[in-house]
Amino acid sequence: MASTQDLQTLLRFLSQDAKVPLAAAMSKVKDMQAAKMITPNDIAKADMESLQKIFGDDKLARQVFNAAKRVSKKRTNSDMSTASTSTIPASSAGKRSKTSFGAPMDPASFEASLALPSSDLSEEQLKEVVVFTNRAPLVLAFAVSVLKYTMPSQPLSSRLSLAQAVCSANSQSKAKYLGIQNGASAEDEGWGEGQPLVTVLNRQIRVMKRWGYTWKEESEVKEEDPASTQGTVQGDDAQETVAPEEPALWGVDLEALKNSNEPVTAGAMHASTSELPIYRPESTRAYMLKAFGSKPGAEGKPAKSLSAKKAAEEKERNLGMLLASLDLLCQSWNNTLSKEDLDKRAWSWYCAVRPEVESGAAGWGGKGDVKLADILKLRRQPG
């Protein structure tokens, strides 16, 4: 059985060397352990079909496989058989936070490309739906949905980035609590100090202002109700109101910032976003689209096998139905609760409906049912 240190090393390999989003990496550790793929060498020797089954995505499986081969080869060539896979060479530290997402597009097109699925089902139909998932993507779904109401002036790209920031922070805290991850996190060490803070799902996260990012037509901005587009960004010593003219935000990836070993400076704000230590919305969206399956067949038997295309379509529909249910929940309380209270209440809602998993490290990454009827029961009752 893999030790806690082995699991920690595997997690670091997936999130740092293979560049798998942290929440996604954490959800796969248990499956990797069951398949006896603990070290990069194990993964490099595995067959691609097994990796594809675990990650559910050919491209991501290939990404992990290639990273394992690269790390294994590097360790062999340098005769460092006892080195940790989490070691980051100084010469490449600045490169770890860089991700290529293709040529930039105009802001309006960029926001449109991030559109999330929706559902036209009635409330009664939604109540019959059960999705099968683990906890991390459910946190993302709650955060993205709630931010639509607590920080309505933020574009979808910002909501996805902020959602990933809070999900990763929660996952790191949980991993440390369970002993899966040891040592101080970048947050514990004070990385990002001086950057503004926002509160999402009752947790403060560091953000970066996206100066000059305009994603709406001027007429569209003028038509908005200013009272409905205000949020609060908290500085270290004071608070400032975010009015409609204030910029969009990025969630700061503190671990990437730590690995780059560089401060977030004013000059960096004008660099390419692929060079900034931020959570990219494209990765968050892609993860969410693949995270919500359907409940397996009776008595734990697999449901009818679907083609890759059909399975992807089913997961996308499930996400649309989940987001529709969460939107109905938030709508019911939006005119009753303040933005601060809505944010606090949302975390308790998540805790009430999250999938049941085994306690302790055994339940890490475990999946379970999320009944949309349970979400809809949390709506404010009239009267």
Rank of each mutant, 00 (worst) to 15 (best):
R280D: 12
F65E: 01
E220T: 04
N334Q: 13
D225Q: 04
V242R: 14
L138H: 08
M80L: 06
Q33I: 11
T229E: 10
A163T: 12
Y287Q: 11
G190M: 13
F55S: 03
A67D: 03
G365I: 04
L126C: 01
K258Q: 15
E124V: 11
D57V: 03
N170P: 00
S260A: 15
P89L: 07
A271P: 03
Q172R: 14
K377A: 11
F65L: 07
K127Y: 01
Q52V: 10
S294I: 08
L276A: 07
S332W: 00
L7D: 04
R203N: 13
L306R: 14
E218N: 11
Q381D: 02
K53A: 14
P277H: 07
E356R: 10
G235K: 12
S86D: 15
I180K: 06
V200I: 11
R12S: 13
Q204D: 15
L326N: 01
K95V: 03
M321G: 02
L249M: 14
V29W: 11
L51N: 05
E220G: 02
V198T: 14
N261H: 14
K98G: 03
C351R: 09
E316C: 06
K209R: 14
P155S: 07
D327A: 01
P302Q: 12
L7R: 15
P277N: 09
A44M: 06
W349C: 01
A268M: 15
S50D: 06
P104F: 06
S283R: 13
M269T: 11
V207R: 12
F55W: 15
K30H: 14
D327Q: 09
G192Y: 08
A2F: 08
L140M: 09
L178Q: 12
D106P: 05
Y177V: 07
T199G: 01
E224G: 05
A266I: 12
I180L: 15
A308Q: 15
G383K: 05
Q63Y: 09
L326Y: 02
G212Y: 13
L257V: 11
L372G: 00
G267A: 08
L328S: 01
R203G: 05
K371E: 04
L323H: 03
D106Y: 08
T273L: 06
E223P: 01
L322S: 06
A83E: 10
L11S: 13
G293Q: 03
K53G: 04
L319D: 07
C351P: 00
Q125P: 00
S158K: 07
L378D: 00
A24L: 15
A108F: 06
S50N: 13
M208F: 09
L14H: 09
K19F: 05
A112P: 02
M105K: 10
G320S: 06
L197V: 05
S78E: 10
